[in-house]
Simulated assay, not measured.
Amino acid sequence: MIYVFLANGFEETEAIAPIDLLRRAGKKVITVGVGDNIITGSHGIPVVTDTIAQEAPLTDELEMIVLPGGMPGTLNLEKSDYVQKAIDFCVSNNKYIGAICAAPSILGHKGLLNGKTAVCYEGFETQLTGADIGSGSVAEDGIFITARGAGVAVNFGLKLVEKVHSKEESLRQRNAILCD
């Protein structure tokens, strides 16, 4: 089971591309609304979530959480006690955390990227406290998978598929969607 947290002001492409690719790979992906079950993205697109944060249990079935970026979505995710609790749960239980665009800053503020390679949206590097800033569009270091922004949302989603399924499935998905 994978939770994708959505808060008002999230970047739509950074959420929908990974959701789609993970579901194509047969993973159970649950969209989790922070504050409500109708969340509006940063470009005015409303999304009805599968559940709300308070009703999303943190159990061993959870394989990964995904934090899309966008503004003010990232700020709204960061100030959610439940999102903070979910991050802590993943760290304590060695579960993957995917964060894209500005969202890696949430992990940086918590000191979780200290000594880890990570990437983020241009200009947020100073928010990745203690991180080694990578040069690629997607970075993986331990349980943390980070990505630069909307333009690499598909590659981010494919990396998430690789981590919770397999490299073969990620490649199969890449070929199926005709991604270079």
Rank of each mutant, 00 (worst) to 15 (best):
Cys120Ile: 05
Met71Cys: 01
Asp88Asn: 10
Asn94Ile: 04
Val32Trp: 04
Leu178Gly: 01
Asp50His: 15
Asn37Phe: 08
Asn93Ser: 09
Phe10Gly: 09
Ile143Phe: 03
Leu58Arg: 05
Ala176Lys: 09
Ser92Gly: 07
Leu77Ile: 07
Gly149Glu: 14
Cys90Pro: 07
Leu22Tyr: 07
Ile16Asp: 01
Glu125His: 06
Tyr3Gln: 06
Ser170Met: 12
Pro57Gln: 05
Lys167Tyr: 05
Val34Leu: 05
Gly108Pro: 14
Glu122Cys: 04
Thr51Pro: 11
Ser42Ile: 03
Val164Arg: 05
Met1Gln: 09
Gln127Pro: 01
Ala147His: 02
Ser135Tyr: 02
Asp50Ile: 00
Thr117His: 09
Asp20Arg: 10
Ile100His: 14
Tyr3Trp: 03
Ile143Thr: 10
Ala147Arg: 03
Asn114Lys: 14
Pro72Asn: 14
Asn37Gln: 09
Gly69Val: 00
Ala86Gly: 09
Leu77Val: 06
Gly149Arg: 02
Gly149Trp: 06
Asn94Gly: 01
Pro46Lys: 12
Tyr96Thr: 15
Asn93His: 15
Pro57Asp: 07
Ile87Thr: 01
Leu107Gln: 08
Arg24Leu: 10
His109Ile: 00
Leu58Asn: 03
Gly157Leu: 12
Ser42Lys: 14
Ile133Met: 13
Lys163Arg: 15
Thr126Leu: 02
Cys179Pro: 00
Gly108Ser: 10
Lys79Leu: 00
Gly73His: 04
Leu21Ser: 05
Val4Arg: 07
Arg172Leu: 09
Asp88Arg: 12
Leu6Gly: 11
Gln84Pro: 01
Ile177Glu: 09
Val34Cys: 12
Asp88Glu: 13
Ile30Arg: 00
Gln54Lys: 15
Tyr96Met: 13
Asp20Thr: 15
Asn155Ser: 13
Tyr3Met: 12
Phe89Met: 10
Leu112Ala: 06
Arg23Ile: 11
Ile38Asn: 13
Asp50Val: 01
Thr126Arg: 11
Ile65Ser: 11
Ala153Gln: 06
